[in-house]
């Protein structure tokens, strides 16, 4: 069972602001997700390599050849607060 504190912790990591009602609902929903994963965990998988990818591919590499970058105006076009040729952001002070 996922506790209320755990929901708030995960919400904070994801920078999510949850209402009281959402916190309670998330606790239930996340618990049922974990229950399902525990069910999968019952499978006998000794000797089976953990799967990180489903594609049978390795070493997909790109040659080290430069391609044109975006003009700065375009790079900054979607910036909510462009300033001094850069992306203005709130001061990260207490965050992190």
């Amino acid at each position: 069972m996922i506790e209320r504190d755990q929901v708030l912790h995960v919400a904070r990591l994801g920078r999510l602001k949850l209402s009281e009602e959402e916190v309670e609902r998330m606790a239930l929903e996340l618990s049922s997700v974990l229950d399902h994963i525990e069910k999968i965990g019952e499978l006998q998988l000794d000797g089976v390599e953990p799967t990180s990818h489903v594609l049978p591919l390795e070493n997909v590499l790109r040659d080290d050849v430069p391609r044109a970058s975006l003009p700065r105006d375009r790079a900054l076009a979607e910036a909510p607060e462009p300033a001094g040729g850069g992306f203005g952001v709130p001061s990260p002070g207490g965050e992190g």
């Binding site: 300033a83 850069g86 203005g88 952001v89 709130p90 001061s91 990260p92």
Partner: peptide
């Protein structure tokens, strides 16, 4: 690179900091 406002004179009108990608 995150340039903090106040750390550099070249930032004008930025509320906080400016990011150079």
């Amino acid at each position: 690179k995150l340039v903090h406002a106040g750390a550099s004179g070249r930032i004008h009108g930025a509320a906080g900091s400016v990011v150079d990608f």
